[in-house]
Computed example of a mutant assay.
Amino acid sequence: MTVQWAKRMAAAAGVAVVAGTLPILVASPASATQSACTSYVANHGYFAGPKVKAACDYAALDTGLFKMANPACLLQLAKVGVKSEVSDPACKRA
């Protein structure tokens, strides 16, 4: 087993765990908004166009103890080149 293969398997397992736990999490009405997410991204030097706005449409998940960035928001922001240091806090504001 190569290191690359092991990394791929670990990533796949992580995605499966997140996908399996999402239905369990209860999303409450968000106190933050799409515009808070979009503004956060824009304030960190990124163009907040339609793709960023669409990503910020995915509301943060409220676990009851803390807010968790929606994986769909994170993925969409990553696709347009937003670094994780910016996308994670931005998606928690969505």
Rank of each mutant, 00 (worst) to 15 (best):
K53D: 01
T2K: 09
S87G: 14
H44C: 01
L25K: 03
V15S: 06
C73V: 10
C56G: 02
C91K: 09
Q76R: 14
L75I: 03
M9H: 00
N43D: 13
L75D: 10
K67R: 09
A78N: 14
V15Q: 06
A36K: 11
P29H: 02
A69S: 13
A48D: 02
A69K: 04
G20E: 00
A19V: 04
A6G: 03
L22H: 06
A19W: 01
T38R: 05
G49R: 04
K67S: 07
A72E: 11
L74V: 12
A90L: 12
V41D: 14
C91M: 10
G81Y: 09
K92A: 13
K7W: 13
K92M: 11
C91T: 09
C91A: 09
P29K: 07
C56P: 08
K79E: 15
A30W: 03
Q4M: 05
T38C: 04
P71V: 07
Y58G: 00
T2G: 15
G81N: 13
C73R: 10
R8E: 11
P23F: 00
A59W: 08
T21F: 06
M68I: 08
W5E: 14
E85G: 15
Y58R: 01
L74S: 04
C37P: 09
K7T: 09
A54P: 01
C73G: 05
T2N: 15
V15K: 06
L22N: 00
Q34V: 15
G45E: 01
Q76W: 12
L75A: 12
A10M: 04
F66Q: 05
K51G: 01
A55M: 03
V41N: 10
Q34R: 15
G64W: 02
K53T: 14
S39K: 13
P50K: 07
A13F: 06
G45V: 05
T2V: 04
V82W: 08
V80H: 14
A55E: 08
F47H: 03
Q34P: 01
A42L: 02
S28D: 07
C73T: 13
K53A: 13
